[in-house]
Write a protein that binds this DNA or RNA. Sequence first.
DNA 1: TATGAATGAGCTTTCATTCAT
DNA 2: GATGAATGAAAGCTCATTCAT
Lengths: 201, 201, 201, 201
Amino acid sequence: MNSVRTPRQHRSIQTKKRIINSAFHLFAQKGIHGTNSKEIAEKARVSIGSFYSYFKNKKSLLLEMLEDYLDRHFLAIWKSVEKITVNEMGRDDIKLIIEGVFEAYGISPEFHRQTHALRYSDPDINRIYERERSREVTQIRYLLESNKNRMRVSDQEAAAIIIHNAVENVAHTAKFLGPKIDEKRLIEKLTDMINSFLLKG
Amino acid sequence: MNSVRTPRQHRSIQTKKRIINSAFHLFAQKGIHGTNSKEIAEKARVSIGSFYSYFKNKKSLLLEMLEDYLDRHFLAIWKSVEKITVNEMGRDDIKLIIEGVFEAYGISPEFHRQTHALRYSDPDINRIYERERSREVTQIRYLLESNKNRMRVSDQEAAAIIIHNAVENVAHTAKFLGPKIDEKRLIEKLTDMINSFLLKG
Amino acid sequence: MNSVRTPRQHRSIQTKKRIINSAFHLFAQKGIHGTNSKEIAEKARVSIGSFYSYFKNKKSLLLEMLEDYLDRHFLAIWKSVEKITVNEMGRDDIKLIIEGVFEAYGISPEFHRQTHALRYSDPDINRIYERERSREVTQIRYLLESNKNRMRVSDQEAAAIIIHNAVENVAHTAKFLGPKIDEKRLIEKLTDMINSFLLKG
Amino acid sequence: MNSVRTPRQHRSIQTKKRIINSAFHLFAQKGIHGTNSKEIAEKARVSIGSFYSYFKNKKSLLLEMLEDYLDRHFLAIWKSVEKITVNEMGRDDIKLIIEGVFEAYGISPEFHRQTHALRYSDPDINRIYERERSREVTQIRYLLESNKNRMRVSDQEAAAIIIHNAVENVAHTAKFLGPKIDEKRLIEKLTDMINSFLLKG
DNA sequence: TATGAATGAGCTTTCATTCAT
DNA sequence: GATGAATGAAAGCTCATTCAT
């Protein structure tokens, strides 16, 4: 039998959550390659056999976790959108969103860093990250569209990708590579750049 | 004893080159974790013992290759600087530099991709990439300084980092993740963004 | 060609000595298994190829060194015999010899320790050590014979072996295993034991 | 199908025992350095992976075995003490103990020989042997103390060490290095020596 | 004769996964 | 369902020795 259990009962769900939790902490702490399945099972107080009845293999656990994580990451970013005036965005609104992005990394910068590291070498990981990128680019395009007449940009698709890339990479630099330069200064300039790029005058 | 041979003789140098070459192709093709030392040696038509007399271990081979690669990458970018009017930069000059960056990835996008993937999980790889970043940021600051009076930016350090991040990540998206969108459009918008960010009026 | 050079010329002899010297220090310092032939050659400023023209292999170097060493060890012990009244030995003479043994370890306790460690697992090493034992037991028997009428022992062969064993092992304990107990006290009691064993009441 | 049910823990214990047994024979036969983990596993009809799930590494297997072995060795020696008149020891009692020591080597002279060979080059092995020595010296001192008024020795600590050394090395010579001389003669003389050393008149 | 590049068997150890109990 | 003993391919690395130059 090769089937993976879909937990329906309360205890089962709890067990699965415990496994995911263990993995989350261990991956963040010791890296994904540096963590083995036995460790994960042990930390979750499950047998290794149980582990493999909840997840087909280590990789599928990771993918499931990553999808979950990126959902939370996405929500964390865009909940700040509530505070902005969507169709009359100004510099302050742009800054608010950028700050939202930076804050969203607070969930677990280490897990983000470790999975992001696999992005360019593992197609499955990349696929999930691309779906996330797509969602975010769509959101940015929606904002551009909503402020169309106040914008100088014509090629909205390209612009959205550019903006997304810039913000993402600045956030990674700040969050993953230590505080070489004050985060606030980076946010300020990043806001400047995007603001001058987008808005007329 | 753990000393690594420094080739003095012609044959030695050739052998070392063969190993590096073989590694270069395998790393690009199958990833760094996906390539083992035996394979590298075999492809180079060298015994595994020879491999380990030229390199302390797989990692040190990688680091040596990466330093070399990033030197070439750096030169490839900034050779285009000769064509620009350094202290009277305009949109065209910015575009020229960005195009230079994109072209520089031509050396081996795959090797770049694979090593970049390790950046956030391997401190040694990151150290080498940080040195490269530092060189590039310095170059950008030099250009900002040379065009000081025509610029609107005040915090040059932060600005240089932001610009570098934006360009790097857009290039990675274009070069590593397939042609989802036309490269020319991305370059165009990226140029726009940086241009409007930097130059008055 | 498999022949090992027998050096006749001055420079050759010097080179061979340099190799032996290097090996001597490295073996003492890092153990015999912990030292490889390349290191020995390097420390002696000879090529590894030269090394193998002076010695058939690492083992034969070791055996040659050991024979040499044990010759010196033997001489160091029995030179003190000059000071004793051979055919009218008393407690002081016994003590003098024991002290001679302890001093003889001064040549290189570490080399002695490292080779002795191989004695019980390597038949070739053991053979050389057995030859040395034989020489020493012969000497002891000679002394017993010279003092025959003053001795209480009958089975001289067994007695000589026993005495040799006792002295050797006490010396090893003192010299190889650190100063858990003062050497002088051990020598004193060892002398007592042998004295009371041998000499009439 | 293997229809015989082996309880979970029982099976585990059996496997571990099989590994230890296999190692015991191979170490004795081919030496410790001459035996590799794969061979041990094979002889025990166990996968190499199993081997490493029972023992951290080859060394820790050896240490565990040695501790066990020396416990048995110690008991084998001192069980003969029951037969002696502890506080009125005579020559016969001394002889009985020495014979006990010689017999104790019967458990596995080869394993003893191979591990003893490592004693002077491996600190961990030595540590375990030193603990054993300490136990034995303590026993000897206890006997000396119990017969205090009949003894001529003053420095009991040194005397105990000397005696222990003498007996140990004579036993090693007899047991490890082949029957060059009749064991009985050695025991006789050894008894004489210790007897005359210890007992008045 | 001297050199040192080259060899490759051999060793230890890890870990994702399976399957008998 | 649950368990954890067992698997074994696979990887990294060493070093005594040879032999082409």
